Simulated scan of single mutants.
Amino acid sequence: MAGLEGMEQPRRHGSATAARWSPAVEDERALKALELFGNPTEAEVPLPSRPESAATARRLAQVVVLRQWGLSPKMTEDAVLLVSELVGNAVRHTGARVFGLRMRRRRGWIRIEVRDPSRGLPCLMPVQEMDVSGRGLFLVDKLSDRWGVDLLPRGKTTWFEMRVADR
C-alpha cells in the first residue's frame, strides 16, 4: 500500500461522533418528533413525563419556531431553551404521567404553554452564581417578555410569551 503512505486516514472515533450529532441529524430528529407526536400549533401535544421528553419538546419548538414561523435563530434558541425549562419543571415537580405542550402565534407574539395535572405553583427563586439547579424559572423570567401560570379545574398551564417582529 505504498500509495497510501503519508495520507491521513479518517478517524473512526471522530466520524462516529459527528454522525451522532450534526445540524442535519438534529433537523431530521426534529421532523421525526413532529411526525410522531403531532404539531403543537394545531392542538396540544401530549408527552410522557420522562426526562427524554425535554429533548422531544425542544425539537418540536425548533421545527415550529424556526421553520414554520420563520423566526430568527436567536429567538429560536431562546424559545427552545425556555421550552426545555418548562418541560423539565413539569417532569421533575408535578408527579404527572403526561403533560401537554402547545405553541401559539398571534400578531407580534409567540406563546408556549406546558399544561400538567398538578395545581402546585412554580416558584421563582433567587439564583446565586454557584447554584447548580433552580435556574429554570429564572431563565424564563429573564429571556421571555412575560410568563405566568393559569390555574385550571384540574391542574395548571405554565406559559411564556416573547415579542416577535411581524413581517
Rank of each mutant, 00 (worst) to 15 (best):
residue 113 E to W: 10
residue 107 R to S: 11
residue 122 P to H: 07
residue 110 I to H: 03
residue 113 E to D: 15
residue 146 R to E: 12
residue 52 E to H: 10
residue 59 R to K: 13
residue 90 A to Q: 04
residue 156 K to R: 15
residue 40 P to R: 00
residue 44 E to T: 15
residue 66 L to N: 07
residue 149 V to F: 02
residue 152 L to A: 11
residue 123 C to K: 13
residue 53 S to R: 09
residue 73 P to K: 06
residue 52 E to G: 04
residue 151 L to Q: 14
residue 119 R to Y: 05
residue 143 L to D: 06
residue 97 R to P: 05
residue 118 S to C: 10
residue 33 A to M: 01
residue 108 G to N: 02
residue 79 A to G: 06
residue 154 R to V: 15
residue 77 E to M: 11
residue 76 T to Q: 02
residue 101 L to C: 04
residue 125 M to K: 12
residue 136 G to D: 00
residue 147 W to Y: 13
residue 107 R to G: 03
residue 26 E to W: 00
residue 154 R to N: 15
residue 98 V to W: 09
residue 116 D to L: 08
residue 147 W to A: 03
residue 126 P to H: 06
residue 48 P to K: 06
residue 49 S to Q: 03
residue 73 P to E: 14
residue 28 E to S: 14
residue 65 V to T: 08
residue 117 P to W: 05
residue 78 D to R: 09
residue 143 L to E: 08
residue 58 R to T: 15
residue 102 R to E: 06
residue 135 R to P: 00
residue 31 L to C: 02
residue 128 Q to R: 15
residue 150 D to N: 11
residue 34 L to K: 00
residue 91 V to Y: 01
residue 48 P to E: 09
residue 79 A to F: 06
residue 33 A to R: 01
residue 121 L to I: 05
residue 41 T to D: 02
residue 40 P to V: 01
residue 124 L to H: 10
residue 147 W to F: 08
residue 135 R to Q: 09
residue 90 A to H: 09
residue 112 I to A: 07
residue 65 V to S: 09
residue 62 Q to W: 11
residue 128 Q to E: 14
residue 105 R to W: 09
residue 131 D to H: 05
residue 103 M to E: 03
residue 87 V to E: 05
residue 132 V to Q: 13
residue 24 A to M: 05
residue 82 L to V: 04
residue 109 W to A: 02
residue 132 V to G: 11
residue 46 P to L: 09
residue 62 Q to I: 03
residue 30 A to N: 01
residue 102 R to L: 11
residue 142 K to L: 10
residue 114 V to N: 04
residue 100 G to A: 07
residue 66 L to Y: 05
residue 131 D to V: 03
residue 51 P to D: 10
residue 150 D to S: 09
residue 125 M to I: 11
residue 113 E to K: 07
residue 110 I to E: 01
residue 129 E to T: 08
residue 36 L to M: 11
residue 154 R to W: 13
residue 86 L to N: 07
residue 76 T to C: 13
residue 134 G to Q: 03
